[in-house]
Structure formats: structure tokens, C-alpha cells
Design a protein around this nucleic acid. Structure first.
Lengths: 159, 159
DNA sequence: CTGAATAGGACGAAAAATGTCCGGTTTAAG
DNA sequence: CTTAAACCGGACATTTTTCGTCCTATTCAG
């Protein structure tokens, strides 16, 4: 249960773009150097981000990538799903497969519910939130307040 | 970002134990056959559950496993951490390593906060909740209500 | 036309997940 | 005491996923 490098690089890359003027075109090579991410790999990741419509690309000389939306209109879940495809905590929950294990299907339901909560958590944080925090830290303001507050989840009801 | 087979089997195995009288000793072989899980693999998983104190084991003839606590005192996070070790969404968050990438540390903080929320979600569901739901489903009552309700997360504050 | 830059697919190495196996230890029972 | 049953623990093998690289095509500015 972890976040892949590809997703991590994707977030860092988007964060880099978000740190420039909207519409500013930036090359993979620049991001790769500045953020110390393997260039070819980052190129692949940005292909996914482009296909998902999070960034736009210009090909040819003078080309590069630029944000397709404002950074407060892009959240972490968008990026994860762009890079990894739809989140599925379990094979069961993969749309295509479906669930054959009728004897433990309560588990599938549980995991589904947990998955939705996780997705909601991820969808609740935008790139703008993250960029803001990033900027704060660079200026040594180091806010001690957590980015996401603790949540008291409602009690489970099975009936 | 997914749950491993080992964790899945661990949950199913615990669920099986929870379906019997507290203190009833059950062999790996039985769980393996009834739930169709590879025996040696399940044995390994139960070793972890034992080390974590979620179940107790008796060795020798007539041995087996039994719950160490009541099922409402064991939650899903307990099981995941018993089988996989502490959850770390990112290498950064692995206690030992620490974070060297100062330039993207806001990301680490974000992931840390998200991680805590995810953990809270997992910790909020007990084996008893799951077993109850399981029983309901077997008796064809099929509750349509989700096990975990949707959560409206509080807004992010960066200041 | 030429060089710069992304698009996309094929490929490969490394790491992790998923098991298997075997010798060791403990225990109940004869 | 011996034996068979059952867990313990480590080493090992297989498969899948991750983490990239590389090459060719396409597009575009100058």
C-alpha cells in the first residue's frame, strides 16, 4: 500500500508547472534537471498527464508542457489516476474483473467503502493547496498545522 | 496503491477465526481448505499475526490458532500492519529513512497527512463490524447501506 | 531542410509479491 | 519414550510489478 515513483514524479512535475505562470511552456528536460528525475521516465509520465488532460503539450522545437487548468482545479487523485489508472484497492474492485469469491464478498464491500474514503481524501487536496504549502516552507514559515485535519469517521452501521 | 494478497488472506483468516467461539483452536489446514488459500502461505501470514499479538498459537499435536482478543478489539489497520509492517505511503515516511529531498518536502508532509487519514479510516473498522456484515450477507439480507459512510473532509488550511 | 522536442511502443533490469520447501521445535497421545 | 501432528523460521523459486531505457515516428520553428 504505497505510492509509486511514477505518481510521486508526476506530482512533483505538476507542482513545478504550477510554480510558473499559467500557460508558460516548460520542457521535460528542464523539469528533469531541476527536480532530479530521470528524463525518459518523466517523459512517459507526462504523456499520461497529457492524455488525461491535466497538461497540454506542444511538439517540435520550442515545445513543452503547460497546465491545462488552474492548479486549484487539479487534485491529487486526478494525478494518481492519470498516471496509474483507476485506483483499485483489490482485484475485486477492478471494474472489468468483478468478484467471484462470494464467500468473502463482505470484504470486497468493505474495501470498496474504504477505497471511496481514500479517494475522497486524495480528491480533497488540490495542486494549489500543495503549491501554497510548498511556497510557505521555502520562505521558512513552516506551518505546524497539518494540511489535512484529523477526521472523526462516523460509526459503522451494518444493518 | 493496493492491498496485497497476504493482507487479504490475513483478513479472511481472522474473519474465519472470528466466526468461531472465542478460544476455539483452529488449524491452518482447515482455514486453508475452507477459504481456498495456499496452506504454506497462510501459515506464514499467521506467523505474523501471532507475532503481532492478534492471535495466539498452540504448537504440537492438536495445536492451531485462536483469537487473542475479541473481534471488536481488532481493526483492519491492526491486521495490515501485522502482515506488511507499518504503512508508509512513501519511502520518505518510512521511519528509518527520513527525508532528504528538501525541495519537495511539502509533498512528504501532504502524503503524511493523507496517510494518517487513510490509517484512521482503516482503524475505524473492526473485525466484528466486518463479521457482522459478512453474516448479514450470508443470510441474504444484503444491506445496501455502505459499511463506511461518506466523509466530508474539512477544508485544507495552509496557514 | 534541419534540429529540437514530444508520442508511443518495445524492451530490459531490479524489486516486490507470492508462494514453496525443509529442517527444527513443541506437544498430545499411545 | 516414541511418534505423529502442528506451528516456527529461514532459504529459496516463480511471477508480477515497478522503474526505467531506447529507438523510431511525428511535429514544428527557424
Amino acid at each position: 500500500m504505497h505510492i509509486t515513483r511514477a505518481v510521486e514524479y508526476g506530482i512533483i512535475g505538476m507542482l513545478y508547472l504550477a510554480g510558473h505562470d499559467r500557460g508558460k511552456v516548460v520542457m521535460i528536460d528542464e523539469i528533469s534537471r531541476k527536480e532530479d528525475i530521470p528524463k525518459s521516465f518523466l517523459g512517459k509520465i507526462f504523456q499520461s498527464l497529457t492524455r488525461a488532460g491535466l497538461v497540454n503539450s506542444n511538439r517540435g522545437a520550442g515545445g513543452g508542457f503547460y497546465m491545462a487548468r488552474d492548479s486549484d482545479q487539479i487534485n491529487i487523485l486526478d494525478i494518481i489516476e492519470a498516471v496509474e489508472g483507476k485506483i483499485a484497492l483489490q482485484r475485486c474492485l477492478d471494474a472489468a474483473t468483478g468478484c467471484s469469491n462470494s464467500d468473502s464478498c463482505a470484504l470486497c464491500l468493505l474495501l470498496h467503502d474504504i477505497q471511496e474514503t481514500v479517494k475522497q481524501t486524495l480528491a480533497n487536496t488540490t495542486l494549489a493547496d500543495l503549491a501554497q504549502k510548498h511556497a510557505d516552507m521555502k520562505s521558512h514559515k513552516h506551518p505546524q498545522r497539518p494540511l489535512t485535519e484529523s477526521v472523526r469517521l462516523p460509526d459503522i452501521r451494518t444493518e
